[in-house]
Amino acid sequence: MRHLLIIAVVLLCTSCQQKITTDDLDLLNGYWEIAQVRMANGETKTYTINTTVDYIEVTGTSGFRKKVYPNLDGTYDTSNDAEQFVLTEGPKGFEIHYKTELSEWTEQLTTLDENSFSVTNAAQITYSYKRFEPINVQK
Rank of each mutant, 00 (worst) to 15 (best):
I135Y: 10
G90T: 10
Y98G: 03
D26H: 02
T46Q: 08
N29D: 08
K45Q: 09
S79G: 07
S79W: 03
T106M: 13
I125G: 01
K45F: 05
E43D: 09
Q18E: 15
E33K: 03
I96Y: 03
K66E: 12
T22F: 06
S79T: 15
T75I: 04
T46N: 10
E33R: 07
N80A: 15
D23Q: 14
Q84W: 10
L112W: 09
S128K: 11
Y47V: 11
Q18T: 11
V119K: 02
Y47K: 05
A40R: 10
F85P: 00
S128N: 06
G74F: 05
Y98P: 00
C16S: 14
T88E: 15
T22G: 04
N41C: 03
G74M: 13
E133H: 07
T111D: 14
I6F: 08
K67A: 07
L5Q: 12
N121R: 13
D26G: 00
E104D: 10
E133A: 08
D26I: 10
N29E: 14
A122P: 00
T46I: 13
S79Y: 05
T126H: 06
V86R: 14
V37H: 09
Y55E: 13
A35V: 02
D54E: 08
L25G: 05
A123K: 04
S116G: 01
A40N: 10
S128M: 14
Y76A: 15
V119D: 02
Y129S: 08
F117M: 13
K99I: 15
T14V: 13
T126S: 13
K45H: 06
T59R: 06
Q18C: 06
V86L: 15
E95W: 05
E114D: 14
N50C: 05
G90I: 12
T61I: 13
G90W: 08
E114N: 10
P70L: 15
E107F: 03
V53S: 02
V10R: 06
V37I: 15
Q124T: 12
D24R: 04
N80P: 00
E101Q: 09
S103R: 12
V53G: 01
N29C: 10
Y69G: 01
T126C: 09
L87Q: 05
E95N: 04
D54A: 05
T22K: 12
V68D: 08
R38A: 11
T88G: 13
T22C: 01
L5H: 06
N41M: 01
Y31V: 14
V10A: 15
N115Y: 04
Y31F: 15
L12D: 04
D113L: 12
S103P: 00
F85G: 03
D81M: 08
L109E: 10
F94T: 07
V9K: 03
W105F: 11
L25S: 02
L12E: 01
K92L: 13
L11Y: 00
E43G: 00
T48N: 12
N80Q: 10
I7T: 11
Y47H: 05
L109A: 10
N29H: 03
N136S: 02
T100I: 14
T51A: 02
F117H: 11
L87W: 02
V68L: 04
W32P: 00
K130A: 06
T111K: 07
A123D: 14
A123T: 09
L102M: 11
K139T: 11
T111F: 07
T59M: 04
T75M: 05
T120A: 01
T51M: 09
E43H: 01
E57F: 04
P91S: 15
I34Y: 04
W105R: 04
P91G: 13
R65Y: 01
